[in-house]
């Protein structure tokens, strides 16, 4: 617990790989379980809880894994390699922070689920929770990065690069890993049938249709 607590205190040592992964698995898993409980516990609905408890940590870990190689090379090419251990600790700490904040917000989601059965509103509430966690984690990341930026201003550009890259991958991965909440009208599944597609193309499609366009970009 002390190691998990340290993740949120960047100035006092900060995160290590082990505790950060534990935080992602436990915190992300905890929030995922609550997130997947929208359909209740009856019958096979419990499966959705298990799936979502696996998928939230998977979302955080896979996004980090996909974006880390480019982050490493960008750090190296910009001549910031000597600070790599600190930079790595910073992004891992931010992952841990997302998960811990999500876990701390899970009770609110549970109360919302108990109060409203509207699936679309549940989606919005969960989106809001992820937004709060993302903003909090970004704040933690900035704290981790403060000494690095003070030493070399180029670290700020790399940190922003990381945030852009991370968001770009995470949005698409979140889309592919649907459903997280689980529409009660549909049976629980790990991957939604036909869910694979491109989040950005879908958003562009929706915006286009909203302005009266008729073209769809399924392909």
């Amino acid at each position: 617990m002390r190691a998990l607590d340290a993740i949120l205190r960047p100035t006092a040592g900060g995160a290590r790989l082990g505790p950060a992964v534990v935080a992602v698995v436990l915190g992300g898993g905890g929030y995922g379980a609550v997130m997947g409980s929208f359909g209740g516990l009856a019958g096979d609905r419990g499966l959705q809880i298990v799936f979502s408890a696996v998928k939230v940590p998977l979302l955080l870990l896979l996004t980090t894994g996909l974006a880390l190689p480019s982050f490493f090379v960008l750090n190296t090419v910009l001549g910031l390699r000597r600070d790599w251990p600190t930079a790595l600790r910073a992004v891992l700490g931010a992952q841990g922070a997302v998960a811990i904040v999500l876990a701390a917000l899970a009770p609110y989601t549970a109360v919302w689920y108990a109060s409203s059965g509207n699936y679309h509103r549940a989606t919005t509430v969960n989106g809001g929770m992820f937004l709060i966690a993302a903003v909090a984690a970004q704040w933690v990341l900035r704290q981790y990065y403060a000494p690095l930026v003070a030493a070399d201003r180029r670290h700020r550009a790399v940190m922003r690069g990381w945030l852009i890259l991370y968001a770009f991958v995470a949005i698409q991965l979140g889309w592919v890993l649907r459903p997280f909440i689980g529409d009660p009208a549909l049976p629980p599944t790990f991957f939604r049938a036909g869910a694979w597609g491109n989040a950005y193309v879908v958003v562009a499609d929706i915006v286009w249709k909203a302005f009266g366009g008729t073209v769809t970009w399924s392909r």
Partner: peptide, 26 residues
């Protein structure tokens, strides 16, 4: 060398989007 290193570092992201995206233009 710098060019190919940056390129290959983005390889996992490209592969991930290629696997999950049907839209060719994207």
């Amino acid at each position: 060398s710098v060019l190919t290193a940056v390129l290959s570092a983005f390889g996992p992201i490209t592969a991930f989007f290629s696997v999950t995206t049907a839209n060719y233009a994207f």
